[in-house]
């Protein structure tokens, strides 16, 4: 019973340390498997054109998943991100149409997102409202405000800077349409992922997020700045939703409407869960959520290529996958406790 662990990393120690990587590795395997299947079934998958358009169109999802990862790591949840995307995109475009400087409008979109997060964070930390209630209310609020602004699509002016974010950068000019084309929006997404990685693994605030998710009372007693950190992560989540709105609006040619983003929070949560982050918090990686987003991207690609699966099935499939992964997490954590 006196477990004086030996100094060199034991097999057991290594195994346990890497066990939290297992789900992420499984997700990677799943992603590759899906791509291979798609290639065999439909062809033209491992194709620079297909790949790059997939990555570019999923850039907003990746950004939302990153924000959601941080929130879920702390043991919370943010149900408002989809609605915040709608509000910030509609309000941003309307500001542009009203003559506000295009770049300023972009900044304001991110700020508005952060404001929603700030309110949610304050409700959760200082008024002990449960995260799902607080962010659910924010979701209805943001969606409602977006609908108040406009129920019909609005379009940004043709010369608005926001469109620049969607410019195609031909990285590799391949034969015919087989080009590797990326956009500034995609590059932004990559930056966000890197920044989140640095935040979570290289800053004390980020480690506080893990501590809160692991054992909040312990984090309190250890003297960590729990209150400040918790409010900031909801601000980050909201701001990232604003950024995702910027990229998405650019992608669709400057069009924004109040029904944008419906269900996006589900996709974000699914990406996070598939990527191996525990819904209960404390364990997970932002890179895992990126893999999770790619799995969703592959899923979407398979469904669109296979015309026989009707669109209404997509929601059921995403929901089922989310449920399966959540159940798996539950089973694994229960076994670990025993």
């Amino acid at each position: 019973m006196t477990a004086l662990a030996p100094s060199r990393p034991t097999l057991r120690g290594n195994w346990e340390r890497n066990q939290s990587l297992l789900p992420t590795l499984a997700a990677v395997a799943l992603f590759i498997g899906m791509l291979v299947y798609a290639e065999l079934a439909y062809g033209r998958v491992f194709h620079a054109g297909t790949m790059s358009s997939l990555l570019v169109s999923f850039a907003p999802t990746i950004i939302l998943a990153v924000g959601m990862t941080i929130v879920i790591l702390s043991g919370g949840i943010d149900l408002s991100v989809g609605a915040v995307v709608a509000f910030t995109s509609v309000s941003g475009v309307m500001l542009m149409n009203a003559g506000v400087n295009g770049w300023l409008a972009i900044v304001l979109m991110i700020v508005f997102g952060g404001l929603f997060g700030l309110v949610a964070g304050i409700l959760i930390q200082y008024f002990t409202v449960q995260p799902f209630i607080a962010t659910l209310a924010m979701m209805f609020l943001a969606r409602g405000l977006a609908s108040m602004l406009s129920t019909v699509p609005v379009h940004a002016p043709d010369d608005a800077p926001i469109r620049l974010i969607a410019t195609d950068w031909k990285i590799i000019d391949g034969p015919k349409v087989n080009d590797l084309v990326l956009t500034p929006g995609f590059v932004l997404a990559v930056f966000v992922v890197i920044a989140a990685f640095v935040y979570l693994h290289r800053t004390r605030a980020g480690r506080t997020v893990y501590a809160i998710g692991g054992a909040e009372s312990s984090a309190q007693l250890m003297g960590l700045p729990v209150a400040r950190t918790r409010v900031s992560i909801y601000v980050i989540s909201g701001a990232l939703a604003g950024l995702a709105a910027v990229i998405y609006t650019a992608e669709v040619g400057g069009k924004a409407q109040n029904v944008t983003g419906i269900g996006w929070e589900l996709d974000a949560i699914a990406a996070v869960v598939i990527g191996g982050t525990l819904l209960t918090g404390g364990v997970g990686y932002v890179l895992g959520s990126v893999v999770g987003s790619l799995v969703l991207a592959a899923l979407w690609m398979i469904i669109t290529k296979d015309g026989s699966i009707k669109p209404e099935f997509l929601t059921i499939i995403t929901g089922s996958i989310l449920l399966v992964f959540v159940l798996l997490q539950r089973v694994i954590t229960r076994r670990r406790v025993e």
Binding site: L123, F127, V129, I133, A134, A137, M138, M139, F140, L141, R143, G144, L145, S147, M148, T151, N258
Partner: peptide, 15 residues
């Protein structure tokens, strides 16, 4: 379109 926003605010206030 204004009602969902209004309802959300009422929920927050009541909570």
């Amino acid at each position: 379109a204004a009602t969902p926003a209004f309802k959300a605010i009422v929920i927050i206030v009541l909570v």
